[in-house]
Write a protein that binds this DNA or RNA. Structure first.
Length: 569
DNA sequence: TGTATAACTTAGAACCACGGGC
DNA sequence: GCCCGTGGTTCTAAGTTATACA
């Protein structure tokens, strides 16, 4: 295990503990023996506006109570954002804002459209400008203070090892920003107090102290879970957690395990495919539906698709929750037979649009599933994620729908790298190949991003640089030609150097263009077995730093320790 | 068998600091 | 030395899965 290093670095642990530790790690859900931390960092208290920053209602100045003012500032801070123009957002905000008003305010303020937050908004903009314009020394002071807080609250001790905590700061109050068409956007996310907080730590640790004059909701000692702090959030009523950083042993080990499960799937995926193809012919509808859904999950890397409570969240779907309206069947399209056109909103309301030729049997089954149904009916009415996952569990230990995404992502990277890396290429060209392989995965997983606001301009700038470099190259070549006798060698070198620089720029331009609407980070961080990339680096002499930045190297420390140049997923 | 809940992973956007180019 | 763009970091929402319970 690559995680033994963290054990052996503990000088006080006797050797025999090594075994004990390993045993306990993996049995009956125990996650740790010892856990000590300092608790969360709370959001700073509300700092009231200076009296010259005014709020106007119906054109008239109105002094708000501190509570109502605070909520108003949340809206004011978002004034430039599209959110504040949306009806749902405004309605939810207004409703929750009223709850924070005094009865006098409530009776005066009866229409959000008559509220003028512009002075507040200007004030916050000025504040942020002022922050930018601060002296070096003042900025340094803030940095030092942040570092002090990080050192005090940002680490914990888990089983004798100091580990970085991920989100040790409690989420500050504000207005809820849901993604897509979220029915709750604009609602007030309330301030979290010590009385809301459940602390989890070991009995024999030094328990974190609540701020003076306050109490925790509860202190518990549950070593079957990994979280340090939790609270219940007021928008969906779900629980939020403070957990460890990805660099921690507990996260790394889990990550490793995830990829090992995906590699086990590799060994039996052909058997499973044969099985679901066979099930397309089943006389039972539920089996056919299960088999077609699994085919989509496997072929298209769709998410499982749990049911969601209507009206509580944005209307998004995954495989099992697909509705008839999300598919269009084309007997024939662009010279291909049996094309399925998918168009639906997935996680984070990201659109999935794809036209896929499928096997005749799948097509016929889809026609059957869609027969006599309304557009808003479930495509797989005899299936849900629980049924699907129970079936998968029977096919392979630890197999669930999401393992297919991990497996298909990683195997795609591996195949693409094997296929397109050219050992003759220089380092930037090899990295372009890597990014293209990464991109193939991101496309498979539908990882999209909004094109950066500065995209057009930055492409233009790059083109300008390329043009200038071309001219420089032409000059250098001319000079080389002219100087038949003098310093020929050094001029040849100059030409070569410029050619290399030009190529680097052109590669950069290609890479950026191809990346316009595709996000590589998510697959890199969550789906691609890092050992594939590390082995590739070793094999082709690419420094790992070119592929993984510092944070990523910390997260993947286990893989860097482990992977040899011949590792194959 | 269905439903609620808890725990944990995955996700894109916003924010911020830093370094390269002028 | 300054400005601007970018990559890295932070933030927290939105998924999946397991499990408890009716």
């Amino acid at each position: 295990s690559p995680f033994l290093y963290s054990l052996t670095s503990n000088p006080t642990a006797p050797d025999t503990c090594l075994f004990l530790w390993e045993e306990e790690r993996y049995t009956d859900g125990v996650k740790w023996k010892f856990l000590e931390h300092k608790g969360p960092v709370f959001a700073p208290p509300y700092d009231p506006l200076p009296s010259n920053v005014k709020f106007y209602y119906d054109g008239k100045h109105m002094k708000l109570s501190s509570t109502a003012e605070e909520v108003a500032t949340f809206f004011a801070k978002m004034l430039d954002h599209e959110y504040t123009t949306k009806e749902v957002f405004r309605k939810n905000f207004y409703k929750d804002w009223r709850k924070e008003m005094t009865s006098e305010e409530k009776s005066k303020i009866t229409d959000l459209n008559k509220c003028d937050f512009s002075e507040m908004s200007e004030y916050f903009k000025a504040q942020s400008e002022a922050r930018k314009a601060m002296t070096k020394e003042d900025k340094q002071k803030i940095k030092e203070e942040n570092e002090r807080i990080l050192q005090e609250y940002g680490f914990c001790i888990m089983d004798n090892h100091k580990e970085r905590i991920a989100n040790f700061r409690i989420e500050p109050p504000g207005l809820f920003r849901g993604r897509g068409d979220h029915p709750k956007m604009g609602m007030l996310k309330r301030r979290i107090r010590p009385e809301d907080i459940i602390v989890n730590c070991s009995k024999d640790s030094k328990h974190p102290k609540p701020p003076p004059g306050t109490k925790w909701k509860e202190v518990r000692h549950d070593n079957k879970v990994t979280w340090l702090v939790s609270w219940t959030e007021n928008i969906q009523g779900s629980i939020k957690y403070i957990m460890l950083n990805p660099s921690s042993r507990i996260k790394g080990e889990k990550d490793w395990q995830k990829y090992e499960t995906a590699r086990r799937l590799k060994k039996c995926v052909e058997r499973i495919r044969a099985q679901y193809r066979d099930d397309w012919k089943s006389k039972e509808m539920r089996i056919r539906q299960r088999a077609v859904a699994l085919y989509f999950i496997d072929k298209l890397a769709l998410r499982a698709g749990n049911e969601k409570e209507e009206g509580e969240t944005a209307d998004t779907v995954g495989c099992c929750s697909l509705r008839v309206e999300h598919l269009t069947l084309h007997q024939e399209m662009d010279g291909q037979e049996y094309v399925v056109e998918f168009d639906f909103l997935g996680k984070d309301s990201i659109r999935y649009y794809n036209k896929v030729p499928v096997e005749k049997r799948v097509f016929k089954n889809l026609q059957l599933f869609m027969e006599d149904k309304e557009p808003e009916d479930d495509l797989f009415d005899r299936l849900n994620t629980s049924i699907l996952n129970k079936h998968l569990q029977e096919l392979m230990d630890g197999l669930t729908a999401k393992v297919f995404r991990t497996y298909n992502a990683s195997i795609t990277l591996q195949q693409q790298l094997n296929e397109i890396t050219n050992s003759e290429d220089n380092v930037p060209a090899k990295i372009l190949s890597y990014n293209r392989a990464n991109r193939a995965v991101a496309i498979l997983c539908n990882h999209q991003r909004a094109p950066p606001k500065t995209f057009e301009k930055s492409m233009q700038n790059l083109q300008t640089k390329i043009d200038a470099k071309k001219e420089q190259l032409a000059d250098a070549k001319r000079e080389l030609k002219m100087s038949k006798y003098l310093a020929v060698e050094s001029k040849k070198k100059a030409v070569q150097r410029i050619e290399e620089q030009l190529m680097k720029l052109e590669v950069q331009a290609t890479d950026r263009e191809e990346n316009k609407q595709i996000a590589l980070g998510t697959s890199k961080l969550n789906y691609l077995d890092p050992r594939i990339s590390i082995a590739w680096c070793k094999k082709f002499g690419i420094p790992i730093e070119k592929i993984y930045n510092k944070t990523q190297r910390e997260k993947f420390a286990w893989a860097i320790d482990m992977a040899e140049k011949d590792f194959q997923f």
